[in-house]
Computed example of a mutant assay.
Amino acid sequence: MTLKEFVVGNFVSERGIGLIMSTFGGNAFGMSDFRNFRVIDLELPKQIVSRFNGPNFGIEGMRKILETEKSRRPHLGTIVKPNVGLTPSEFQDIVYEAAAGGVDFVKDDELLVDPDYCPIEERAAAASEGTSSR
């Protein structure tokens, strides 16, 4: 399968490079049937590459935001999968519990994108509100 088989418009900058990476190998890396699996090369057309400006913060920027520059401890993250039917409110509760348990990052389900039952804007607002107001 090549990128030419996909519509270039599917890869918009608002969804980030993670969508591209997930599309071309994401879940395969976690499948036990695929041993010795790796992506060796991926060529993207200029019209996709030009949409991405690189990371917003980088490692040091994230350490500053999380106020972990001095401790240099490893960061801990988790993934919440709203594709099991979570509403924005349920998503918020899980994000809050994860943050209360010491998680630094909550990664959204990269392939879910924007379903009617849990729209991305509502999900992001609920997650932000859940970690800052409780």
Rank of each mutant, 00 (worst) to 15 (best):
F37H: 05
G26S: 03
V80L: 13
M21L: 11
R38C: 15
L44H: 00
I94P: 09
E60L: 15
D104E: 04
F57N: 11
A127Q: 07
R73D: 06
S32K: 15
T23W: 00
L112V: 12
N36R: 02
E129H: 12
I17A: 03
A28V: 07
S50C: 13
S22T: 12
E90N: 07
T23H: 00
E69N: 12
Q47A: 08
I40F: 04
F52E: 01
H75W: 11
S132H: 14
D93M: 07
G130T: 11
N36G: 11
R123V: 03
E60N: 13
A100G: 14
G9S: 15
H75N: 02
P88D: 14
E129D: 07
S128T: 08
Q92K: 15
S71R: 05
F6C: 03
P115W: 03
S13R: 08
K70Y: 03
L111F: 10
S128A: 10
S71E: 09
G30M: 08
D114Q: 12
G101V: 03
D33Q: 11
D33T: 09
L19K: 08
A100N: 13
F52G: 00
D109R: 02
S13F: 04
T131V: 15
L86P: 03
F52D: 00
K107S: 01
M1Q: 07
I94E: 04
I79Y: 04
P74K: 08
M31C: 12
V95P: 04
V8E: 11
K81N: 12
T68D: 07
V8T: 10
S32A: 07
A126D: 14
I94D: 05
G16D: 07
G101Q: 02
V95I: 14
I17M: 15
F6V: 00
S32G: 01
F57W: 13
R38D: 06
E97P: 13
I120R: 14
L44I: 06
V80D: 04
S132W: 08
G101N: 06
R123Q: 12
P74E: 10
F34I: 00
L76C: 09
H75V: 12
E67W: 00
T2W: 02
S128H: 09
Y96W: 15
D104V: 09
G25Y: 01
G58W: 11
P82I: 06
D114P: 05
Q92P: 01
P119S: 08
I59P: 01
S132Q: 09
L111S: 07
L19A: 05
R38I: 02
S32Y: 04
I79M: 06
T78W: 00
K46L: 04
I120L: 14
G9K: 15
D33S: 13
G58N: 09
I48M: 05
V84Q: 04
L66T: 06
T2F: 14
G130A: 15
I48T: 04
S132E: 11
L66P: 00
T87E: 11
R123E: 12
R38W: 01
D33V: 06
V103Y: 12
N10I: 02
D33I: 01
S133E: 13
R51Q: 13
T2S: 15
V95D: 04
E43T: 13
S32W: 02
D33A: 08
E90W: 09
K64W: 12
N83R: 03
E60W: 05
E69G: 04
L3W: 00
G102A: 14
L86Q: 06
C118N: 12
R63W: 15
F11Q: 02
P55R: 02
D41H: 09
G102M: 05
I65T: 02
I40Y: 03
Q47K: 08
E121A: 05
